[in-house]
Design a protein around this nucleic acid. Structure first.
Lengths: 135, 135, 135, 135
DNA sequence: GTGGTCTAGACCACA
DNA sequence: GTGGTCTAGACCACA
């Protein structure tokens, strides 16, 4: 059983939202290496979205090494472990954080407040793991 | 004189990039309240993009209170100060940070490494201010 | 089927007129929450204006919460209900009414005549709802 | 001495704002028939706007019969009384009120609340007259 | 000269 | 097919 809420009006594409939700599930340990994910068809039906959309999210996750897609066994969280933080990824994150942090600075947050915010979100993500498992 | 580099190949729209660059300029104090920005047409020509693209970025910045657009005096960094961190903004930032932090956690970063990264980006932004002013 | 007449010669921009017409349609219950609106391109063709002009009206309506724009389902009158009368809106309306009422006072209308006029327009708007639905 | 505040960032043109402020002054009896107004040049300097802007406002007011412009005596509030409410004006006001009232209805105001709002603005305008005269 | 508006037309991501 | 983005180019109100 999956508890994923998508925002169909969001400016961010549904397949990206879906990808992110699954990654959040892994981060919060609601999804663990080896855990199965629904088939494209089933998941699409559950979420009320197009099959292509789920497929696109899965492809992204596979590309980055978060999941494995087997013809027979279906889709599972990568049992061999998660991808690592390489230079490429770090550069990307920096590029993404830069405008967010800049705007916060403009709006008057100092370094301490910023750190506190990050920490809160960090713990919020971990707390997600106290719920029932996603699958 | 403006030193802003846009990535025309990027997946993120030019007008968003431009908006962000200007906000980074403010965060790094290269742009200060009251400072003038180029007219949409001049800026467009300088950047090699269309007038409407610049205008779209300006409209976003105006909406959020970062700049003022005077029919006469042209465009200036809001001399009355920057917008504040309200609940709405905070909720937004949290929503934006969540997937980034989640992925970092998945990839094995612990809280300390994450904090260090944030701090580095934070200081990188401030260092931008050591260059000559943007205008 | 949509019956909206725009005045291309008017001093008020087409996209503002269009925005207002749609709001009048909602006020008169010709358009109800959940009702679909034409796609930007279809509507533009029907109205004989450019796609961007319709889009600008839609963006305004979306910003204020009157409509939702789904990447998939297209455009609909906000099914979650309309925006409310908040302090911000009230202040705006007052600011808009002030010159209109002032001029009427100058021209010799007393409070009763003014009230009667408002009431007439109010009922005129509601009468619009007796026509067939807009869609 | 004139106490008129213009919003240079407003979307409404300065000359329209100025026109409206003067009409509000008349409605609140801070300005009475026969009262002098500053010369274009003086007024422009006092307000910090272009002469053309003041002139344009004056031309509008003269056109509608709110003021008289004499080459020698200067500018005065029309001593022969104000323009009246003719059919043309009424039609115009209705057209202006329609979108405002429609939006209020959409946002959930009923007729009574609307009437109360109008009445408040009406009285606010009259209260303006308790201040010192504008000239 | 400046921003505001509008058009015609194009390509693309998304679903 | 839908909205999102971008361009080139035009006219106008405003100051």
């Amino acid at each position: 059983m999956v508890i994923i809420s998508l925002d169909l009006q969001s400016e961010s594409p549904i397949y990206i939202q879906l990808r992110n939700k699954i990654i959040e599930g892994i981060a919060s340990k609601q999804l663990r290496p080896g855990d199965p994910l629904p088939s494209v068809r089933t998941f699409a039906q559950d979420l009320g979205v197009n099959m292509h959309t789920v497929n696109k999210a899965y492809q992204l996750l596979k590309q980055d090494g978060f999941i494995q897609i087997h013809r027979q066994k279906g889709v599972v969280i990568n049992p061999d472990g998660m991808p690592s933080v390489d230079g490429n990824y770090l550069a990307n994150v920096r590029e993404n954080l830069r405008p967010v942090i800049s705007e916060s600075v403009c709006r008057g947050m100092n370094k301490e407040e910023l750190m506190k915010l990050i920490q809160e979100v960090y713990e919020e993500i971990q707390k997600g793991g106290e719920h029932d498992d996603l699958h």
